[in-house]
Design a protein around this nucleic acid. Structure first.
Lengths: 143, 143
DNA sequence: GCTTGACCTGTAGTGCACTCCAGGTAGCAG
DNA sequence: CTGCTACCTGGAGTGCACTACAGGTCAAGC
């Protein structure tokens, strides 16, 4: 699993940019998905092309994609990410963007707490099975 | 918290059980999804019926459904839950079940860490936007 | 000059997890 | 008896996020 933090990719991106294949490798996203994201308007601008019409991803593009990954993996839908991309394209919308991120943050925190509770339940189940395994305990054995 | 093995619903379930509508309300799952889960073999047994052929959910059924919700919300696929349901139906498979839960636990922990890192990234973005908002800082402003 | 590989576009297909629908039954209120 | 509501079945439909494919271009290596 590629470790994609945020703005930084952790690899040197040449000033002429990288190919879509390289971008896929660096971000962990997959070529088809990168084109799909672009089609869906998730990129800030259409990715610039070389003379032959092939996409060239620059450092800021990769950083943005890392942000997309972050939003996707925290459960934001493509349509909602598009909203963020749309406002991010327009200057003077910093307050709006802040609001969107704050909103999303709340959902992520909620989700995190929920998952933590579920993890505790899993731990309880594991503990019960361990007890059942060691001193074969017919009562505490869960289904 | 009385029973460690079976998670609690937090409502009294009458001994004759509850209807599917009530079960949906209590578990938060939705009538169609409950029938779907049963069709897909996620329930331990086919839900018992009353004289008229309508499903009656008892406490242990609701507890099991709560477990399904927990597994689903931690990202386990229906097919994988079916595997758990299948082994849980067969006696003497406690070791196998333990293994399945331990495996899932690892994935959940990984997911949790990933989400925590994403949350930190979101916080960083929010902080940057806040800085940009207060003392209009053209450089540190993120996209 | 030919092949290979990576890329391109536009469109179709896939997998998953539900969700809806048509057409029917059972029990209860008025 | 007549609605009305909640439930039933089998099967079709939906929404989402990709993913695959057909048919083509282009640059580099042999």
């Amino acid at each position: 699993m590629t470790d994609v933090a945020l703005p930084e990719i952790g690899a040197d991106v040449p000033p002429e940019g990288v190919s879509i294949g390289e971008a896929a490798r660096l971000t962990g996203v997959g070529i088809e998905a990168l084109r799909y994201y672009e089609r869906e308007g998730l990129m800030l601008d259409p990715t610039p092309r070389d003379e032959g019409g092939r996409r060239r991803y620059h450092e800021r593009d990769l950083a943005w994609i890392a942000g997309l990954v972050m939003l996707r993996e925290t459960g934001m839908a493509i349509a909602d990410i598009r909203v963020i991309a749309d406002v991010s394209r327009r200057p003077g919308t910093e307050g709006e963007r802040l609001h969107l991120f704050e909103q999303h943050r709340m959902r992520v925190v909620e989700q995190l707490e929920r998952t933590r509770r579920h993890l505790a339940a899993i731990d309880a189940k594991i503990a019960a099975y361990r007890r059942a395994a060691t001193h074969s305990d017919p009562e505490g054995t869960p289904r």
